[in-house]
């Protein structure tokens, strides 16, 4: 945590709204993006981020200053989004396009994807969002935090409150699942006679 953050935290604890706004200015875009990827639409992401930031402001007294503020903020972001997902009582896809089929599938077994078939850049770019919505939620969050937002294993462990081993396992299973889903969809298209 930077010394500037420490000063801003102290002032925010005293109810100084401006200090708090300065403090979160670096992190709120990331918090919003995490929420957006987890919840799948802008409106919910905006609500969840605002709720998170208000919770952070209200709970600053509970923040232990020897820990990293950003990690604490992202932990609350992830937990707030999980609460929202729980409230929905159904699995959401990550797709921005809501017309996509909202299904949760278990990780496709390795055997279903022919290892000889390779991914191609254009199909990965097109199908990634939809595939992210189809892998289990904990794997998806771990992959998002690591590969999209560049958090370290240790930071993800702190955010998710789990060991580095678990984080690595979730990430590798998540990536594996993404690859399998994209390959499966590709082979389905081939069977339907479409072009890749």
């Amino acid at each position: 945590m930077t010394s500037n953050d420490a000063v801003l935290i102290q002032k925010s604890k005293q109810g100084d709204v401006h200090s708090f706004e300065l403090l979160i200015s670096k992190y709120q875009v990331y918090a919003y993006n995490i929420a957006w990827r987890m919840l799948g639409n802008e409106e919910d992401a905006k609500d969840a981020t605002q709720e998170t930031l208000i919770k952070v402001f209200k709970g600053l007294d509970k923040f232990k200053e020897n820990s990293e503020f950003s990690t604490w903020l992202y932990t609350i972001t992830v937990n707030t989004c999980r609460d929202q997902l729980r409230k929905r009582k159904k699995v959401m896809t990550l797709s921005v396009d809501d017309t996509e089929e909202k299904v949760s599938i278990q990780l496709v077994a390795e055997e279903s994807a022919d290892p000889a078939v390779r991914l191609e850049q254009k199909e990965v770019a097109g199908q990634l969002l939809s595939a992210l919505g189809k892998i289990p939620e904990f794997q998806k969050t771990a992959v998002l935090l690591r590969d999209v937002y560049g958090f370290s294993y240790e930071e993800i462990g702190a955010i998710e409150n789990c060991s580095v081993g678990t984080v690595k396992s979730r990430i590798s299973r998540g990536r594996h699942g993404l690859r399998s889903i994209i390959l499966n969809e590709r082979s389905n298209k081939i069977q339907e006679g479409g072009t890749i």
Binding site: V17, E21, Y32, K46, I54, L119, V148, R175, L178
Partner: peptide, 26 residues
């Protein structure tokens, strides 16, 4: 390739009026 594509996902800017609304709530 997958990791590269994930890393290239653009950051989405905050929606309009986000900061003003948050300020009022804070």
């Amino acid at each position: 390739l997958l990791k590269g594509e994930l890393a290239a996902m653009p950051l989405k800017a905050l929606p309009d009026g986000f900061e003003e609304e948050l300020h009022a709530r804070l």
